[in-house]
Simulated scan of single mutants.
Amino acid sequence: MKRRTGAAALAAVAMSLTACGATITLPAIPTASVAATSSPTSSAGAAPSSATPSAAATSTDGSMRQGLPDEVVDRLTLSRVFLEVAEVKGLHYRISGRVVAVGNTSDSVLTTVTDAADESIPRIEALSGQHAKDKYLILAAADDSTAQKWTGDSNVADADGITMPYGKAAWIVIPTGHRFSDGGRVLDDDEYFTHVMDHEVFHADTLPVDFDDPSVPEWMVEGYAEWAANQEVSTGPEKEPPARLPSDTEVVDDTDDGYFRAGMFVQYLADRFGTSKALAYYRAMLVATHGSIAEEFHRATDADFTATVAAWQRQFHQQFVSFDPEWQWVSD
């Protein structure tokens, strides 16, 4: 659920992989088909790829022994992750009305991931006001090493999900094999996994292509996603955290419940100014030519940012005690 840096660009080569005991030759992918764009619209809503696909499979799910269906090739290519996925053995895929899911996991895990995304996508798109015309790509990694390969991030063990807005379309990586201190996986708890999926789909639905803007604070990127995820399944700590906006470090390391505090501030903005103005502020900050945090906030809400933060801090205790999370964790 943390912001990640980009994966390596694709090369225009033909690849082959061995999966489920059969060798599958993948088509050459022209470099032009994966060139990044600078559009500030939803990174998941990209134009279809011009890559030549392999032979289509006859079913909407199965092992890679059938060959990669057109839709899988298209989504992988758009998302600049084609080679990273092709190098992993034992892949399976599943295709639904809104999702292309690929992973080196079991069919049952892919089904769980796909079903959760199918429920999440319309909910988040209705909230954001954006609708991706193409399907969302979700990669289900059976282990942390696979998740690291697909994200280029060495800290995947600290994340329940990672969204990569790089290429012409974002992709979501769920490290389904990662086990936490209690031995459970993120998929083992339906409510918490719903929250995680909503959080990641919001990122995929709203982050611009190749987004990596250090002037946009981490509390905004993660706080809006947490706010969106809290609409269906709210999560929160047992102990009240400090009443202050978290620093970038506190969000990245999730110290003092940084994600939660960021989400509570966004909830305050939505309650005070309305969802449309809160989202207008968020969208304005994601545009490459945005002004300062204070300027864009005043433009969207006609209010002072510093005064608004102070007002939120004064009411934070009441906001916390009235918050009734459906999934709660024990604070450190």
Rank of each mutant, 00 (worst) to 15 (best):
R3L: 14
R4E: 13
T5R: 11
A8E: 09
A12R: 06
V13S: 14
A14K: 12
T18M: 03
C20R: 07
C20G: 10
G21K: 08
G21Q: 07
I24F: 14
T25I: 12
L26Q: 11
I29C: 04
P30E: 12
A32C: 07
A32F: 04
V34S: 13
S43K: 06
A44P: 07
G45Y: 02
S49I: 05
A51M: 14
A51F: 05
A51N: 10
T52S: 12
P53Y: 01
A57V: 02
S59W: 02
M64R: 04
M64A: 13
P69K: 01
E71F: 02
V73M: 09
L78P: 02
V81C: 05
E84T: 00
V85M: 06
E87N: 15
H92A: 14
V102G: 15
N104G: 06
T105E: 13
T114I: 02
T114H: 00
D115S: 07
D115R: 08
D115C: 00
A116L: 15
A117I: 05
A117L: 13
D118P: 07
E119P: 00
I121C: 06
H131W: 02
K133R: 13
D134K: 11
I138A: 11
A140Q: 03
D144K: 02
S145N: 11
K149L: 11
D153M: 14
D153K: 12
N155H: 08
D158I: 03
G161A: 15
G161F: 00
G167Q: 10
G167F: 11
A169K: 15
I174H: 05
P175G: 07
T176L: 09
F180I: 00
D182E: 03
D182L: 01
V186A: 03
D189T: 08
D189F: 03
F193G: 07
V196Q: 00
M197S: 05
F202N: 09
D205Y: 01
D210L: 08
D213S: 14
P214S: 12
P217I: 00
E222H: 09
E222P: 08
A225G: 03
W227T: 02
Q231K: 10
S234L: 14
T235R: 14
G236A: 06
G236M: 08
E240N: 03
P241C: 01
P242W: 02
R244V: 12
T255V: 03
T255D: 06
D256W: 10
D256S: 15
F265I: 09
V266R: 09
Y268C: 03
L269Q: 06
R272N: 01
S276P: 02
A278D: 05
R283K: 13
T289P: 04
H290R: 15
H290V: 05
I293Q: 13
A294S: 15
E296S: 10
T306M: 05
A307Q: 10
T308V: 04
A310R: 03
A310F: 00
W312S: 02
Q315A: 08
Q315M: 12
F316Q: 10
F320V: 01
D324Q: 07
W327P: 13
W329E: 08
V330K: 10
